[in-house]
Design a protein around this nucleic acid. Structure first.
Lengths: 90, 90
DNA sequence: GCCCAATTGGGTAATTTGGGTA
DNA sequence: ATTGTCCAAATTACCCAATTGG
């Protein structure tokens, strides 16, 4: 079984998820996806993990997330819109 | 366990890190990874050291960033020398 | 989204390595 | 069995462009 120990670059993961490489970096920084750092500081991602994330989310109703750190704070999201709540403190 | 004093070629190390052999050569030139030179000038890398570097944060809840001081000085070129001096001590 | 610095990868030419054979 | 030569693959070093990180 090729679980796929191959490593993917941020750009490749971004292409798989149709997001910006910066977003993938943000996931890694937040610990939402495992990352391996090269001695130079760049990140590499395990293809097996990426594939698991790609497949595991789209099957049944997503009533259960794996382990999402809930919002720490009295967040009262009255906003119904599924908009990208990006604070953008950068 | 045989952490392996085996020597790996730049191509092997590059495949493990999913980088180009040239990048591995740069790591060696920058002192980020120990290297042994053959009389012909080619480099060989210790598998134990490579694995230690490879053993990054897998899927542990990891949100910290290893502080990476910029290259401010000549790091130890070939370091460990004789003995089971395992690098990776940070 | 933007910026810049650092790292990485591609290209080519020359040398070294390793295997097979004479 | 030892030595020598040939050839294919890998590695090195230089350049510059693209990707990545903060």
């Amino acid at each position: 079984m090729d679980t796929g120990d191959r490593l993917l670059t941020p750009g490749e993961v971004a292409a798989l998820f149709r997001v910006d490489p910066k977003t993938v970096t943000r996931w890694a920084a937040a610990g939402r996806i495992g990352s391996i750092r090269t001695p130079g500081g760049h990140r590499r991602f395990r293809e097996s993990e990426v594939r698991a994330l790609l497949e595991g989310e789209g099957m049944l109703d997503e009533a259960e997330e794996t382990e999402r750190p809930r919002n720490t704070g009295p967040a009262a999201p009255t906003g119904p819109g599924p908009g990208p709540a990006n604070a953008g403190m950068y």
